[in-house]
Simulated scan of single mutants.
Amino acid sequence: MIQPRKWPILTEEEKKDEQKIKVVAARMRDKHPQDIIRWGIEQLGVSSLALACSFGCEDIALLDMALKVNPDLDIFYLDTDLHFKETYEVRDRLSGKYQKQFIRVSPDLTLEEQAVKYGEKLWKKDPNLCCNLRKVEPLKKYLRNYQGWITGIRREQAPTRAHAEVVEWDQGFQLIKLNPLAFWNSKQVWNYIFKNQLPYNPLHDHRYPSIGCEPCTRPVLPGEDPRAGRWSGTDKIECGLHNSPVS
């Protein structure tokens, strides 16, 4: 007897068909995140898929899962040159633990060049432009080399992510996007980190559930939304990397 496939496979034509990808997402949403990563690698090939790592708790869990599936998977991070020192420190600890060199993706402009062109502390005057220059555009250039990317976004994190699927067609970057933790809650993420004794950013223990650039991130007060500490004092809630489909 022919055994049914463990999970769906897309043809080359279907990889860019949003409706087909929605069907796959519906069938994959109950799979373990590690199985979703495995599907992505089997579907696209390890050299055509990359994991975006901000070194926050979700990405640390995903990094561990992904490297257990295939240690050759590319892991990259967007270095805005504005991260907390603790973020760089946990990057180095993880690199040592896994004996893995993470790919640094940097903006075209240094902070000094940006200040000359746009003025000092652009993140205060125009945070959208700053994020675009230091995150979105570098990511867009980097992802041209891939057919898919893996992110740590979860539905629970914010209203803008409430409809994220485990598999999506990323309209902005024109490739397949995997969100293996989309249906996980914060407790599941931390249980995985503690069970596997993974290094994590100590700022998480000091009311920083979501960690971005140092000038734009503050501790979250009791009762606040977990992402309330990002771009506090502005109406900005996303950096522009993730534009999940709306219901």
Rank of each mutant, 00 (worst) to 15 (best):
L122P: 03
T11F: 06
L73K: 01
Y88P: 00
N128I: 13
P4M: 00
V90K: 05
I37P: 04
I60T: 11
A61C: 15
A66Y: 04
N70G: 00
I150V: 06
S54R: 04
P226N: 10
K117S: 11
D74P: 05
I103W: 10
I21C: 06
Q101H: 09
M65Q: 09
I75H: 09
S47N: 14
Y200D: 01
R27Q: 13
N132G: 13
E156Y: 11
R207M: 13
L78R: 04
G45C: 12
Y146G: 09
R230I: 07
K20D: 06
G40A: 11
E89D: 07
K100F: 05
H204D: 02
L51S: 01
T11G: 09
L62M: 12
L44S: 12
A66S: 09
R5Q: 12
Y146L: 09
N145M: 13
D17T: 02
F102W: 10
P159H: 08
P209H: 03
T151K: 05
A164L: 15
E58W: 01
A52C: 07
P107A: 04
N191T: 14
T160I: 08
D64H: 14
D126F: 10
V167N: 12
T217R: 03
N128R: 15
K6G: 09
I9D: 10
G119H: 11
V167Y: 10
T160E: 11
C239P: 11
D35M: 13
I150F: 02
C213P: 02
N132P: 15
N201W: 00
Q174S: 14
L175D: 08
F55P: 08
W39F: 11
A182P: 02
N179T: 06
H83G: 08
V167S: 10
W123M: 06
D126I: 10
L203D: 01
I36L: 13
P199Q: 10
A164V: 13
E12T: 14
Q197T: 04
A228C: 07
G40H: 06
K117V: 15
K22G: 14
V246E: 15
E58Y: 01
T110F: 01
V167A: 13
T217H: 04
Y77L: 13
E58N: 08
R230E: 08
F102E: 15
D17P: 06
Q174R: 14
N196S: 07
L178F: 08
D205Q: 10
E168I: 00
N201G: 05
F194C: 05
Y192A: 07
P107Q: 03
L63P: 08
A228W: 00
D30P: 07
I41F: 06
Y98P: 04
E86D: 01
K121W: 04
F194Q: 12
I193R: 02
A182H: 04
F84I: 00
V189R: 01
E86A: 00
